[in-house]
């Protein structure tokens, strides 16, 4: 397989599991993130387990000015192969923390949305030029309806979804598939300390499902799929009832 997956936010548990999935299918990996020590461990692991090439790359979502150079380097590293993108970075501070500190709120918007829009924007022409490839981005069920518990996080993911819809439309002519995964909670460091969450998927199960779904084409998809009926109900709840729920 002459394909490369660029993993943005590669140290997250979900991204790690997705990278393993891609490597198991023979893809080369570009592992982009901030924790270089960790990315080196991951690159070694993928190369040894699956015999693929895996390269750590420094990437900071909030350093918008660096994105053009970063993308150019990715293009070059992917060689003549098809470049695909898995966008997994994002932060989820406590809603209360974000309420109390505008810098925390702004930092989250910057990382989860501004950074994503910026790097995807720069990647657009590259994907168009190769006339193909797949973009998978991690949205969240939290983006379906603003809940008391984490509506700022949800808002960043809702914004990302809308962005991806237009992005998909623009790139569809070039044969690029764009998939937004509306992720339910996954058993990672992000959710470890939270109270028990329903329908939790392991990173491995989640990544396997994401890989299969990506193979079937773009659009948006709930993962695990149980979130489709659940969120349908939550979206349909009348506002007065919804507002009284403590979710």
């Amino acid at each position: 397989m002459n394909e490369t997956w660029l993993i943005l936010g590669a140290s997250s548990a979900v991204a790690r599991a997705f990278a393993r999935e891609a490597a198991a299918h023979g893809a080369a990996l570009l592992l982009a993130g901030r924790d270089m020590e960790d990315l080196e461990h991951q690159a070694a692991d993928l190369a040894i387990r699956h015999g693929v090439s895996a390269l750590p790359m420094r990437f900071e979502a909030r350093e918008l000015a660096s994105h053009a150079g970063f993308v150019a380097e990715c293009r070059q590293r992917a060689g003549s192969g098809l470049l695909n993108v898995f966008l997994a970075f994002g932060v989820m501070p406590d809603q209360a923390e974000a309420d109390a500190d505008p810098a925390v709120a702004a930092g989250m918007v910057e990382a989860n949305f501004t950074g994503a829009a910026s790097v995807l924007g720069v990647l657009g022409p590259v994907l168009e030029a190769q006339q193909g490839g797949t973009v998978v981005a991690l949205g969240s069920v939290a983006g379906d309806r603003g809940r008391k518990r984490n509506f700022l996080y949800g808002a960043t993911k809702a914004a990302l979804l809308v962005y991806l819809q237009g992005y998909a439309a623009r790139l569809s002519g070039a044969g690029v598939r764009v998939l937004c995964i509306k992720a339910g909670p996954v058993d990672t460091g992000m959710t470890w300390a939270l109270p028990r969450l329903p329908f939790m998927a392991s990173p491995r199960e989640f990544a396997a499902a994401a890989w299969r779904r990506a193979g079937r084409g773009g659009g948006s998809a709930y993962l695990p799929v149980i979130w489709w009926p659940v969120m349908t109900i939550i979206r349909l709840l009348p506002t007065p009832i919804f507002n009284r729920l403590n979710i």
Binding site: R34, E60, R62, E63, V91, G107, E110, G189, A193
Partner: peptide, 18 residues
């Protein structure tokens, strides 16, 4: 600015749960 944010993320306290 980005660097201080990165530093914040890096020193984020460990998640402990009961």
């Amino acid at each position: 600015m980005p660097d201080t944010l990165a530093a914040q993320a890096a020193t984020r306290p460990t998640a402990w749960k009961q």
